[in-house]
Design a protein around this nucleic acid. Structure first.
Lengths: 144, 144
DNA sequence: ATTAAATAGGACAAAAATATCCGATTTACA
DNA sequence: TGTAAATCGGATATTTTTGTCCTATTTAAT
């Protein structure tokens, strides 16, 4: 569904948000450890998220990553996915046709439109804060 | 959503089914041309589909690929996807966690379960014949 | 000022997915 | 029986994704 990069990106954002709720700025090392992802690869993804204003980064000693409380409400899962994987999940034909639309649909066009709309709605309606609260109260997890 | 291989596989199966409705067995070359896919790569995918009894293949002169009419009703989109991409779309965690279930869910587990169930239902309820009839009457397309 | 700790970013490496090439085998027909 | 047309299957090549390594830069504290 998502690329590995995107999976790591979502997990990283969620962990950063969780710690930011407690006023803690977190380092790359801690993030990679807590979400069980390769450190250097995660660094690249965090750079991307930082450039896309998904996370705030602070260089230097006592630096790290954080996300402010207001952003957690504003940021939706779709924003993170867009930043890393683009809109290929919603947009584009399920069978890979260059141009596929209601005028000239592929054999599964209509059925995919439904599924994709559901997915898009879900991603656009799920805030980062929402994902984080479950973690905060111990109902959900970021690694096994 | 699907791999390129799977996209080609679905398009190929649909085209073969369409021609089989008219009693025509079709060659690899014709398939690749009509679904706009790389010939040699499509050959590999057809081998896989043949081994998985999705399509029938006939070697030698006047050989090619076909799918019998009964199979078109029995074969679901999910069978083709399973044969090529496996069950990674339904199964497996949306965030890539090794073990993610209702006991120890990731932050988006419940929301993904819904989406994935919808997708699974759709794939399992869509027969190859159903995909083919639209093509046959010129309502749907496999290239452009 | 110096130092230690942190992100930034470029270059490189490995693995997986996508794609190609070519010879072996099979088959129908002349 | 020979030949042309077709799939089969192994080896190889290319591209993309995933992952690593190393140096530069930034920053806070001493």
């Amino acid at each position: 569904m998502f690329s590995k990069a995107c999976e790591y990106g979502i997990r990283a954002s969620t962990y950063i948000a969780l710690q930011s709720l407690e006023g803690r700025r977190v380092s790359l090392k801690e993030i990679a450890d807590k979400i069980d992802s390769p450190v250097a690869f995660t660094a690249k993804i965090l750079q991307l998220l930082s450039k896309n204003n998904i996370v705030d980064s602070q260089k230097g000693a006592y630096g790290g990553f954080e996300i402010n409380r207001k952003q957690m409400d504003i940021l939706k899962l779709s924003d993170i996915v867009d930043a890393i994987d683009g809109d290929t999940i919603y947009a584009g034909c399920g069978l890979g046709l260059k141009e596929c639309n209601s005028d000239k649909p592929c054999p599964v066009h209509d059925k995919f439109v439904d599924i994709r709309n559901n997915l898009k709605q879900m991603l656009e309606n799920t805030s980062l804060f929402e994902m984080t609260v479950g973690l905060a109260v111990g109902l959900t997890y970021l690694k096994q």
